[in-house]
Simulated assay, not measured.
Amino acid sequence: MNEKEQVTKCALVTGGSRGIGKAICIQLAKDSDYHILINYQSNKQAALDTLEAVKEAGGTGEILQFNVVNNEEVKSTLDNWLEHNKNAIIEVIVNNAGITKDGLFMWMTQDDWNNVINTSLNGFFNVTNHLIQKLLVQKYGRIINMVSLSGLKGTAGQTNYSAAKGAVIGATKALAQEIAKRNITVNAVAPGFIKTDMTGDLDEKELKKMVPANRFGNPEEVAHLVSFLASKKSSYITGEVININGGLYS
Score class of each variant (00 low, 15 high):
I63M: 07
I93R: 03
H84E: 15
N85Q: 05
M106S: 10
D79E: 15
E52L: 12
N85W: 04
A46Y: 05
V54E: 03
A47W: 03
E83I: 11
T100G: 12
K86N: 08
W81H: 00
V116R: 02
H84N: 15
A47S: 08
L78M: 08
I93W: 02
N43S: 15
N87Y: 07
N80Y: 04
A97S: 14
N95D: 06
V69A: 15
Q65C: 04
K101L: 04
W113T: 12
K75G: 00
N80D: 15
G61Q: 08
G58P: 05
E91V: 10
I63T: 15
F105E: 06
V94C: 01
N96C: 07
V68D: 03
T77G: 02
N87R: 06
N43H: 15
I117D: 03
K44N: 10
W107V: 13
W107A: 13
K101D: 06
E91Y: 04
E52M: 01
M106T: 14
N80T: 15
L82E: 04
I117R: 02
A53M: 03
A88Y: 00
T109D: 09
M108I: 14
D111Q: 14
Q45W: 00
T50K: 03
S76W: 00
E56P: 01
E83R: 11
K55T: 12
A46Q: 10
W113G: 09
I93C: 04
E72K: 12
E91N: 13
L78P: 03
L64A: 11
E72P: 00
E62L: 07
L82H: 02
N80K: 12
D112H: 14
A47Y: 05
T77V: 15
I93F: 05
A46L: 13
L78C: 07
I63S: 10
G98I: 07
N96S: 09
E52P: 00
A88P: 00
W113P: 06
Q65A: 01
N67T: 15
G98H: 02
L51F: 09
T77I: 07
E91F: 05
I89N: 01
A46E: 12
V92E: 08
Q45K: 09
L104I: 15
W81C: 04
I90G: 02
D49M: 09
G58I: 06
N95Q: 07
I99G: 01
T109M: 06
L104N: 11
N85C: 02
E73L: 03
Q110F: 10
E56K: 12
K75D: 01
N114S: 14
E72N: 11
V68Y: 02
V54A: 12
T50L: 10
V74I: 08
E62K: 12
W81G: 00
N71W: 05
L78Y: 07
A88T: 04
I90V: 12
T77N: 05
I63P: 05
E56T: 14
S76I: 04
G61L: 08
I93A: 03
G98Y: 01
A57L: 02
V116A: 07
E91K: 11
W81R: 00
F66T: 09
W113N: 11
V68I: 09
L48I: 09
L78R: 00
V92Q: 05
I117Y: 07
E56F: 10
E56A: 15
L104E: 09
W107F: 14
G103M: 08
T77A: 10
K55G: 13
I99A: 00
K101N: 06
N70L: 14
